[in-house]
């Protein structure tokens, strides 16, 4: 019993000290943002990794997300809700929830694993130490460009997802579900609010930060060899996904219950 309590205590303590070091890292990254212009080349390169590298994944995911939402919506609405609301249902669920969250989970995991494995390997092969010796701060040189690339590009990826998912939903509805094109578009327009789109994008900015921080933090704190890199990558991806889901709930409360309420 005491062993279990001690174990829980240790885990809580580790968790808190980890969170503390995470905050320190975040502060260092924000501080290093002074070098944004100097590091623009590296930032652009990292943005390229996020956007171009993820595109096939984004397209496939988004098309099917839109299509599945259409099928599910038609099934649930059936005779009770007029089909003119189909476009509304699809667009709202994609803009507010599915686009930001799925992109943070799918593209985010890809990115987070990439960051954690790359930086973790650099850590265990002493490349980070070498950088320190050369009086180059790994936070400015490695962490800051990756952080901003994720924060800036995850929302862009989300916009792509939003658009492609609507197209996917439209095609599924018109081609396979006997909904007329006019009905779909009418529904799309009817209850459209800028705040839905904006709320989703604000969420994805925060998710981008969470994804980057998780990958960078676990990468920088990798210990051991190949196994350590594997463990760091795994922990980073799991941590990023869970944090995204929790943050999604909290942001939904703040954004759609308080800020965009009126």
């Amino acid at each position: 019993m005491t062993a279990i309590l001690a174990n829980i205590g240790r885990n809580v303590k580790d968790g808190l000290s980890g969170a503390g070091r995470g905050v320190v890292l975040l502060r260092a990254i924000v501080f290093a943002t002074r070098q944004f212009w100097k590091m623009r080349g590296e930032i652009l390169e990292q943005m390229h990794v996020v956007l171009v590298g993820s595109m096939p994944l984004v397209i496939v995911t988004s098309v099917f997300v839109g299509a599945v939402t259409a099928v599910q919506a038609v099934y649930q609405m059936q005779a009770y809700v007029p089909m003119k609301f189909l476009g509304t249902v699809i667009s709202k669920s994609v803009f507010i929830e599915l686009g930001p969250v799925l992109m943070a989970l799918v593209v985010g995991s890809r990115l987070c694993a990439f960051y954690a494995a790359e930086l973790g390997t650099m850590k265990v092969t002493e490349q980070l130490d070498a950088m320190c010796i050369m009086a180059i701060d790994p936070v400015s040189y490695l962490a800051m460009p990756r952080f901003w690339a994720a924060v800036l590009m995850i929302p862009v990826v989300t916009i792509f997802c939003d658009v492609i998912a609507i197209v996917g939903g439209y095609l599924a509805s018109v081609v396979t579900l006997d909904v007329s094109s006019g009905t779909f578009i009418e529904g799309l327009r009817m209850f459209y609010k800028h705040s839905d789109l904006l709320g989703g994008l604000i969420k994805s900015v925060v998710f981008g930060g969470i994804i980057a921080m998780s990958g960078i933090y676990y990468g920088f704190n990798t210990k051991g060899g190949a196994e350590g890199v594997g463990r760091a990558t795994m922990t980073a991806v799991v941590g990023s996904c869970l944090s995204v889901l929790v943050a999604d709930y909290l942001l939904a409360l703040v954004l759609f219950q308080i800020i965009f309420e009126k």
Binding site: M122, T125, E126, Q127, D129, A130, M131, C132, I133, M134, A135, D137
Partner: peptide, 19 residues
């Protein structure tokens, strides 16, 4: 510390080149 480290060269046992 950074300023001091610029005056140092360090050869790592495993070279530690940026791959």
């Amino acid at each position: 510390l950074m300023r001091l480290r610029r005056r140092f060269g360090f050869l790592f046992q495993g070279a530690a080149l940026f791959d």
